[in-house]
Amino acid sequence: MMSGRLSSIAFAVALLSMAVPAHAATIEITMENLVISPAELSAKVGDTIAWINKDIFAHTATAKNGDFDVTLPPKKAVTSVVKKAGTVDYYCRYHPNMKATLKIEP
């Protein structure tokens, strides 16, 4: 009788652990002195990107494939949620020499 109850509990715990989604991470990307840092970064679908502009002028994070286009006012931060897997090269429309790559896993 006891082993049947333990089996049921073990099964329920295993089922719950599969049903609860993993917690999404918050990842910081900083723009300062006309540099995007880090220049290469990995994230997962569902993660939040905190875009932080430490410069005194505006920047953008513009995906070359059109997946996102984030405008960052001077000395401000903006967040967005990663929605699609793939490797995305992005840049600042105002300062095209500012380039970076975001590798997004499912």
Rank of each mutant, 00 (worst) to 15 (best):
A50F: 12
A39K: 05
T79L: 01
T26I: 11
I36P: 13
S42Y: 12
T71A: 15
A58S: 08
K75T: 12
V35Y: 04
D69T: 12
T60W: 03
E28W: 11
S80M: 11
I27W: 02
G66M: 09
M31P: 08
L72S: 08
P38M: 06
T79S: 03
N33C: 11
H59I: 06
T62Q: 07
H59V: 09
D55A: 05
V35G: 10
G66I: 08
P74R: 05
E28M: 14
P74D: 11
T79Y: 05
E40C: 02
V45N: 09
F57D: 05
K54Y: 12
K76Y: 13
G46V: 07
T71H: 14
G46T: 01
A63Q: 08
V70R: 10
A61C: 00
V78A: 09
P38E: 00
W51L: 05
G66W: 02
A58G: 04
I36F: 15
A50C: 13
K76C: 12
K44Q: 10
P73D: 08
T26K: 03
L41D: 00
A50L: 14
V78T: 05
T48Q: 11
A61R: 03
A43H: 03
K64A: 14
W51G: 06
G46Y: 05
A43D: 00
S37I: 11
L34Y: 15
E28L: 11
F68Q: 08
I36W: 14
A77E: 09
K76S: 14
V70Q: 06
I56L: 15
A50R: 13
H59N: 06
K75H: 11
D67R: 13
K44G: 07
E40M: 01
I52R: 04
I52Y: 02
T60M: 07
N33K: 14
L41H: 10
K64I: 13
I27F: 07
T30C: 10
D69H: 12
V45A: 04
T48I: 12
G46D: 01
L72R: 03
I27M: 08
E40A: 03
S42A: 06
A43S: 10
D47W: 11
I29F: 02
E32S: 15
K44L: 01
L41M: 08
D69L: 13
S37F: 06
T62P: 00
T71K: 15
T26N: 11
V78G: 01
L72W: 02
A58W: 04
L72V: 00
A63H: 05
L34N: 15
I29Y: 02
S42N: 04
K54T: 13
V70E: 04
A39L: 03
S80T: 09
V35N: 04
M31L: 15
V78Q: 03
D47E: 09
P74F: 05
I52P: 04
D67H: 14
D67E: 15
T48W: 10
S42K: 04
K54G: 13
M31S: 14
